[in-house]
Design a protein around this nucleic acid. Structure first.
Lengths: 209, 209
DNA sequence: CCTGATCTCAACCCCAGGGTTGAGGCTTGG
DNA sequence: CCAAGCCTCAACCCTGGGGTTGAGATCAGG
């Protein structure tokens, strides 16, 4: 039985190219084509395809949002994302939103067909580059960026990120609370933070917690 | 031109099964079969195949180590890993070592063939489960474990994690500051938090930020 | 040896944030 | 239809957090 596919891309050339290309592949039926994200979701609702092949950058509703909607509302439809640049910011977002596959636009017909078949089967095909970045992200995590903070300020920041109060931090570092406040004021100024909530976020982004 | 494959699995049944199964697939040539990791590496050296299909658990040299050796010494040979359990500890290790694809042993013939073709092509096919875990690891996926927070409370928590003040949150959500404070009090009680600093840490741990 | 950076501390002010109580409107499901 | 949960808002209190100023002690480096 053939895999039923909806294609979504705002560029007519790409869209039509994909449709004709996919029609030549055995085992794949293109049932509809959308020119933006909103239309894509609507066509998925209408046709309930096995796979949605969607571009990341589109007007109205972008690929990430379309993916999220499709995956939550029509979970039997798998999503394969197609993009021009594999280093696009939104690649990870798309994967998190539930995209099954990931292709760059220089993929050939077999590669695209394979990704669609795989997605319909519950497997996941990733562009090599994307996979590499995923693995790096998953394994090699923190690079503890420095930010001109003194060691002591970093200590304090870490404890703030653990949710400790000033008195608790003072006890922990065996200094007075006044000292803690001083350090905090300094690091707030350096890092341009307003309060400890922002400091916690900052610490997490720095990889300190 | 056919993809040349070396198979490696210590269990004779599995190994022979794979070989006969792969021989039935068009576009795939099995050129050799190894019964442990050391032999696998040796056969790769000898035949320089396009793809090595290797089991994770094997005597002498395990799948991870075999992958690493093959990828460093014979980089033109891609590696597809086959394992019984997708939650195996060494899955990530294998991927880090350079494995291109990842299959569980309940994959059917087409799935295996697809993975091999994809690997030979520079793509990467992952078992659905493995992909999910990769993404979670890489981007702290939103694990729907919301600990009983209401949607609105989650909204507020997210904004707290962005470092916004109550008045800013109120503006952003188009409600009064009193409402924001109510939500905050509720979520603090539910999640056992003392102040917004702890809330930020909590949000990050939940993957909301 | 002086300078600058860091760490330490104190006293003060002010207010955003957090706790509490109470209450009205809105869906939803039994 | 009523109960329950959620979202909304108000008024009050009070503490901890954050801003500011100022200052002594130590230490590395020019």
């Amino acid at each position: 039985m053939s895999v039923r596919v909806v294609v979504a891309d705002d560029q007519r050339v790409v869209r039509d190219g994909l449709v004709t290309l996919l029609k030549l592949l055995p085992g794949i039926d293109v049932v509809a084509a959308a020119s933006d994200g909103a239309e894509a979701v609507q066509l998925v609702a209408e046709h309930r395809p096995d796979v949605l092949l969607v571009d990341l950058r589109m007007p109205n509703v972008d690929g990430v949002e379309a993916t999220r909607q499709v995956r939550t509302e029509y979970p039997q439809t798998e999503v394969v994302v197609l993009t021009t640049y594999s280093d696009d910011e939104s690649v990870l977002s798309a994967l998190r939103a539930g995209a099954r596959g990931f292709l760059t636009k220089d993929a050939d017909a077999e590669a695209i067909g394979r990704a669609i078949q795989a997605a319909a089967d519950g497997q996941s095909i990733l562009d090599a580059d994307v996979q590499r970045r995923l693995i790096e992200g998953a394994v090699a995590a923190p690079k503890a960026v420095d930010s001109g903070l003194t060691p002591r300020e970093v200590d304090v920041l870490r404890l703030i990120a653990e949710g400790l109060s000033n008195t608790e931090i003072a006890r922990r570092l065996v200094v007075s609370e006044a000292t803690v406040k001083t350090h905090i004021n300094h690091l707030f100024a350096k890092a341009n933070l307003r309060d400890r909530a922002q400091a916690v976020a900052y610490a997490y982004r720095l990889g300190l917690a």
